[in-house]
Amino acid sequence: MSKYYLNYLDELEAEAIYVLREVWAQFQKPVILFSGGKDSIVVTHLAQKAFYPSKIPFPLMHVDTGHNFPETIKFRDDLINSLGVELLVGSVQDSIDQGRVAEERGKHATRNALQITTLLDAIENNKIDCAIGGGRRDEEKARAKERFFSHRDEFGQWDPKNQRPELWNIFNGKYFEGEHFRVFPISNWTEMDVWNYIKREKIEIPSLYYAHIREVVWRSNSWIPYSEFTVLEENEAVLSKKIRFRTLGDITITGGIESEADTLEKIVDEVSAMRNTERGNRSDDKRSESAMEDRKRQGYF
């Protein structure tokens, strides 16, 4: 006799597929925000499952900071080809060239905050009413209160103190002209769940997640990749290390960890033994105790 309950990964998967189908049913023009990181790859994989045997019925959208790992862009283009879906790109470089935003200056300058304007412009220009993200509630304390269906006002802003209550599995995606929603199908997943799922489903991920030899600089307690965008300080040295990345973002701020994990099995073992949160290596979150909350209020991912 079969068992009539799901294990937790199957239940998380069924929940995410349900959420993605609700998006398709409730919105006019949704997109998946695709960064090339593992979470957006998992969301894309789940969307493939949700609409099979149809193709994913909406585009993927990449907010391109211009500071990319070349591996990420290649991965993105290959995936788009194999899925046969449309790709939209919002370019931070374009936003700078158009004078919409100004580049930060100094050693710790990043394009992280600039993405907000590019993202909101891309949403407005493409008339997008729902941006599906790979955000998870376990990532950061401001995300712990995020809804599955998260309302954004006409300025793209999140009001954490005035969120719609979300009960059972009934999602209210109603909005007025100019407003939009952010939807997070894997809200209830942890980093460990994501890795276990990638391993179980044999999902292809960029080589950057596997341990590899790379030129790096020690900065803010992690190994920052040395690239054409790196401005070296006097006391900094470029070293060659075997590292891997736990998250992927802008190449100038994504820190790697020293690791020997070059297979999915080894990564899962390493993550389960890990004593630091994955965002611990992201210098964008270290600026202040409420750095993430402040960016989210303004319209960040």
Partner: peptide
């Protein structure tokens, strides 16, 4: 379990927050 900035400042919880452990 402290989440948003207002809560940390006031020492209270104002909204449902979700936590995970395995």
């Amino acid at each position: 379990t402290d989440g948003l900035r207002d809560e940390r400042e006031q020492g209270i919880t104002i909204d449902v927050a979700y936590r995970y452990f395995t």
